[in-house]
Each structure stands twice: as C-alpha cells, then as structure tokens.
Amino acid sequence: MSAIDEQAAAYIAARAAGRWDEADQAALEAWLAADTRHQGAFFRAEAAWAMLDRASVMGAGVTADTIRTSPFQALAPRPRTVTRRQWLASSGLIAASVAGAALIVPALTHQRLETEVGELRKVPLKDQSIASVNTDTTLDVALGAKRRDIRLIRGEAWFQVAKDKARPFVVEADTVRARAVGTAFGVRRYPDGAEVMVSEGVVEVWNTQAQDTPVRLEAGGRVFVPYAPQPIRAEYAPDAVDRRLAWREGQIALDNDSLSHAAAEFNRYNSRKIVIADPALGEEKLVGWFRADQPDTFARSVHLALDVPVRIDDTRIVIGAE
C-alpha cells in the first residue's frame, strides 16, 4: 500500500463527511486527472467503502442508543511480542554456529588456481585473504615473507586482502600492477589491458612500462590500464563496480547495457553460446540481474522484453530472426 492509497482513503472520508462542496469536488477531480494510479486507488477505496455498507444488516432492529457509551475507551490488551533481548540472544547463537562452520575450510599455501568455463571458486589463502576466482581463469599465488604476489595469467579474480603492512599484496596482469595492504578489489584481464575495481580500502595501480607514479584508487573506483604504456584515467563509479563484481554471487548485472555486451558476458560463463542473429538488435539496451549459468533464462527475458524470436537448442541460443 502506498501514500496514494492513503490519500484516496482521505478523499473518501472527506466526501462522506457531508460537508462536500464544489471546491472539494474540483480538488478531487484534479487529483484524479493527474495520474491513472490515483483513479485506480480511488476506485479501489470507493469499493471497499461501499463494501462496508453490508454491515448495516447487523444493525437492523438494534438502535444506535445501545452503544451510546463510548466503546472506544476499552483498550485491547497488547499482544505478546518477542523482546529485543530474546531476539538478540537467538541471533547470536546463529552467528556463533556460522563462525564455527567457517573454521573448517582448509587454507592453501603456494599454488596455481584454475577454473573452467562457468566455474566459480572462492578460495581461502594461507594469509587469511580470500580469492574469488571467476570463470575461465588461471592465477598463481605466491605468499612470501616480504611480499604476497598474485599473477593473473588469464581471466578475472577478486581479492579480500587480509591486513598485513609488512607484506604488500600485489596482483600482476602482464605489465599492470595493483597493490593493496588491507582491502578488497578485483582485477580482470582483457587482451589489451587490465581493469581494476576497488570495493574496499585503497589500491595503487601502475604500469611497469610507464614512468608515471601509481594511480590511487579508493572504494568504488575503477580504472582500465592498457598493457602498452598510455595515460590512464581512474573513475569513481561505485554502482558500476558493484555490478561488475556481481559474478562473485554467480550473477550478471545489466544496467542499460547493450544486448551484444550482455551476450558476450554470458558467453564467458557458458559453453552454449548466445548468438545474435539480427545485428540491429545488438544495440538494444537492457536492465536486470541474471544467473550467469542460465543463458536460456536470459534469452527468454529478451524474448519478453524486446518481443523478438528466440531459439534455444543444445548447442546454442539464437536471438532474433536468422
């Protein structure tokens, strides 16, 4: 129920008050004309008001005098509710058991992490950091006494870095470097450069081939660094960073992204590829959250949203008339 519904009820009450004049009627009509939702809400409230008239049969043969003594002074007993303390006690119990479960996850030392197409792994590292590894990715982890080095060979990963001032945490993607102390950030490799996105704390990003000082990125910041030395420009885009990291929950987030971009994203995760048969459709814009491993659901959404034919078979998904 919305504020509109409450306003509709107020108009009904005012009209039933017996003091309704032309100015009131004009005000009501203006309100109704302003929005079809107002008309819908008013019609609904009017129907409910009329429905209540059915109660009049209960009054037949009983004069109103019998309920003359103000009945509204009798207050109903308050319902018993769970106290805040009881609630906190039980939620504490749940938190404790969850923490207990987290302890049995084995940590890993020095190794290569790989994922297949469509695979998503969350790996605790020995230093208490966590690596979320996206689809079709290879990376090497080397945790030394002075440095923590991660080499992103292909694909994309996000790191929740455990604080350790003595050992900087550096991710390497070709000539691009991103360094953090205690923070959370993601790195994605492209053919021509790497993208760094920061969800918490501060990360320094630089290109080993360039003489520039590192770019400082704070939470919500994002930068694309080409492997060939070129000036780089960071941007502050927290919503975009959130969406681009939706893969950690196995999701793809679209916010006015083109259909061709969306198809490319789904194709990263699935061997059954999405093909856009009609090139004119590629620029259509879409909004929504989807499961990365369900390209068929996405295709059905596109069918609904754009009203275009979609054909789904075992090997591919074709959007648009061929």
């Binding site: 039933a16 008050a17 017996g18 003091r19 209540l52 008239d53 109660a55 009049s56 209960m58 009054g59 009983v62 004069t63 109103a64 309920i67 103000s70 009945p71 509204f72 002074q73 009798a74 207050l75 109903a76």
Partner: peptide
Amino acid sequence: LPARCKAVFELRKVHGLSQA
C-alpha cells in the same frame, strides 16, 4: 480496528448514522 476507529465505523456502517 482500534477502539475509537471501530466505534466510528460501527455507528456509521452498522447503524447508518451520518458523520454529524
């Protein structure tokens, strides 16, 4: 309905009284 509200609705809708 809460007590006072209920009293109003009983008089108006069950007994058919006007607002006044």
